[in-house]
């Protein structure tokens, strides 16, 4: 949690971040019960010398890293958000990015609060699927994301992801290696498909990670896993992770084709579903490490590092890829 001293130090920082001449005070600061990778705070600011009526209030979101939880930092996230906002994509505007740890003990960034609900509707889902397809059709260089690692070889989009998440898992190990994870990593290496297209990948797309008002998406959120890769990775994630329970896999495939004309190959889809389960398995290990080492002994770390991890591992293991 943000301590009273940190809150005091945050007030002049946020005043500067917003480019305001009048010093601001934080009238209300609340930890949001959303997301896991970052601690998210909603801060309501008012001029320090007033009681702060509604017209004076300005709401921002402070998004704080948590000791490398889920194997990501804010650098790519901020870069992508800034670039995509500038390109007219619906992303919250980033107001400040603090790489240092003096102020809140962890790096953080500040962004505009965007109105909207994350409870999806049929209209908002269709709008969102169109936006995800639009993201995949943007040129990374033209969008200002040319500095992100770019897969070169035909199978590199898959292989780079496998090795990246495998490294996250290995560096987070607090006990013995997991045989099922090690086996999955090797299967994913051996079966990595060639990519037909390379694009900007959100990395955690789907229901819960977009806000909308009256069916129109106002912001796509949670960009910590953004990278350059194969669009099938995002579609597989949307279908099998955040979209699970909304429709069957087959219904999702038909829905996506009808909505944006993307035809998903069943075998490739299955590979990318397995890779996304693998990614979940690997990043969850970071939570167990933080909990076991006493670095971040919050109960959600225990939940992610044990039961959430095991569910993902079970899904990975049950994926028929290991049957032959």
């Amino acid at each position: 949690m943000i301590s009273p001293d940190q809150r005091d130090a945050l007030e002049p920082y946020l005043t500067a971040a917003l480019g305001l001449k009048t010093p601001q005070r934080i009238a209300h600061l609340e930890r949001m019960a959303l997301g896991q990778s970052r601690a998210m705070y909603r801060a309501e600011l008012v001029p320090a010398d007033t009681a702060g009526d509604a017209s004076d209030r300005r709401t921002v979101i402070v998004r704080v890293e948590q000791w490398g939880l889920l194997g990501s930092d804010s650098a790519n996230e901020v870069q992508a958000m800034q670039a995509l906002h500038a390109a007219g994509y619906p992303v919250a505007r980033v107001l400040a990015y603090e790489r240092g740890t003096d102020l809140l003990s962890q790096p953080f960034f500040v962004m505009d609060f965007v109105e909207g609900t994350s409870e999806y509707t049929p209209e908002s889902l269709r709008d969102y699927v169109g936006l995800l397809d639009r993201l995949h059709r943007m040129d990374p260089k033209e969008a200002g994301l040319g500095s992100l690692p770019h897969p070169n070889g035909p199978r590199d989009a898959a292989l780079l992801q496998v090795e990246h998440w495998y490294e996250v898992y290995r560096s987070a190990l607090v006990g013995e290696p997991s045989p099922l994870v090690e086996e999955a990593a090797q299967w994913l290496r051996n079966h990595a498909p060639e990519s037909e297209r390379i694009s900007i990948i959100h990395g955690d797309p789907g229901i819960g990670n977009f806000l909308h008002l009256d069916g129109r998406v106002t912001a796509v959120v949670d960009w910590e896993f953004v990278h350059i890769g194969d669009p099938d990775e995002d579609w597989a994630y949307l279908i099998s992770m955040r979209g699970m329970g909304v429709m069957t896999d087959d219904e999702w495939v038909a829905y996506i084709e009808a909505a944006v004309g993307v035809r998903l190959d069943p075998e490739r889809l299955r590979y990318w579903q397995a890779l996304n389960f693998f990614k979940a398995v690997c990043i969850d290990c970071t939570a167990l490490r933080l909990y076991a080492k006493g670095i971040h002994p919050a109960p959600n770390m225990l939940a992610i590092g044990t039961s959430v991890h095991l569910v993902a591992l079970q899904r990975l293991s049950k994926t028929t890829i290991f049957s032959g």
């Binding site: 290696p177 045989p179 090690e182 990593a185 090797q186």
Partner: peptide, 13 residues
């Protein structure tokens, strides 16, 4: 656990 990991990786190859 290490042995089982390596055996299953070997099986994949």
């Amino acid at each position: 656990y290490e042995t089982a990991s390596k055996l299953l990786v070997a099986a994949q190859n």
